[in-house]
Amino acid sequence: MLRALALWAVMPVLAAALVLTLYRIVRGPSAPDRVVALDLLTVVVIGMIAAYEVATDQPVYLDVAITLALVSFLGTIAFARYVERGR
């Protein structure tokens, strides 16, 4: 039962969050908006991974979550540095 709940209740909520983030990525007037949205996208994905792990009772995706967290932070930093330099 828990597995169904995780899959059919939590996932749609995250999917909705995903769509909202994408809206901001596409429409975001200024560059930093898009960067923030991308950052949020990472968190949504981490959420998805967590839900998926519970749903499939497989802890193996945690490493993916860690990598994602580490590496997306870097993306944001690079963006920030680029935005600061103008253009």
């Binding site: 490493d63 993916v64 590496v71 870097l74 930093i77 540095r81």
Partner: peptide, 23 residues
């Protein structure tokens, strides 16, 4: 044995030094 390996390890290592590079 677990997910991982040379490729992703190397990439994460590179990411670490890029972080230092940016900072």
């Amino acid at each position: 044995d677990e997910p991982g390996g040379g490729f992703v390890g190397g990439l994460v290592g590179a990411a670490a030094f890029v972080l230092v590079g940016i900072a």
